[in-house]
């Protein structure tokens, strides 16, 4: 089974400095930071469930930029409605990646519903997303990302990962994260 950090590194190697990335609470943002701390990484502390919605807002506001959402299974399960909204809106520039380790790893490895029968790829399809890939190995993940970055979206990549935790932590100041992101993008409120 692939590791979230290795897969994040493989993803970042394929992105340009122009791409916007929003990474959700817990391990997804730790792994992204360890893979590459880019100005256009928006790290979400807390706000569980909001990651996909933030990414959708970015994709709507800037259809000229690619937007990548990185979110854990627990975070997505808290806001499954976001998949329905995303599928209905259908932003062509959106790549939604869900790292599924089937647990709330940081809080003590309690199982999520995907440890049971819930299947996020099928839920995404049921929500109306048509470009859905379910991958379990690093080569399969890389192939899915290559397709997602070359063909119109929205894409949903359901990546099954192990539960190894990253060591590094991204910046903790919310306003620093925001200002760095917006300044690099050259925008203001």
């Amino acid at each position: 089974m692939m590791n979230m950090l290795e897969a994040s590194q493989a993803l970042v190697r394929r992105l340009t400095d122009d791409d916007l990335v929003v990474a959700g609470l817990g391990n997804p943002k730790y792994a992204l930071f360890e893979a590459s701390d880019r100005a256009r990484n928006f790290y979400v502390w807390n706000a569980m469930g909001m990651t996909a919605s933030i990414g959708l807002g970015m994709a709507m506001a800037r259809p000229d930029k690619r937007v990548v959402i990185l979110q854990g299974d627990g975070c997505l399960l808290m806001n499954l409605g976001a998949l329905a909204t995303e599928a209905w809106r259908k932003p062509r520039n959106l790549v939604h990646i869900c790292w599924d380790n089937r647990m709330y790893e940081l809080t003590g490895q309690q199982p999520t519903a995907t440890a049971g029968p819930a299947d996020l790829a099928r839920i995404a399809e049921g929500a109306g997303l048509s470009k859905v890939e379910r991958v379990e190995t690093l080569p399969a993940f890389e192939a899915a990302v290559d397709r997602a970055l070359s063909e119109e979206g929205p894409w949903f990549i359901h990546a099954l990962v192990d539960s190894r935790r990253g060591k590094l932590r991204p910046p903790k100041s919310p306003t620093f994260i925001k200002h760095r992101f917006m300044t690099d993008l050259g925008v203001e409120h």
Binding site: F42, G49, S53, G57, M58, A61, R62
Partner: peptide
């Protein structure tokens, strides 16, 4: 979340 994403962008 959506309004925040729109604003950040």
């Amino acid at each position: 979340g959506v309004v925040c994403g729109q604003s950040l962008a």
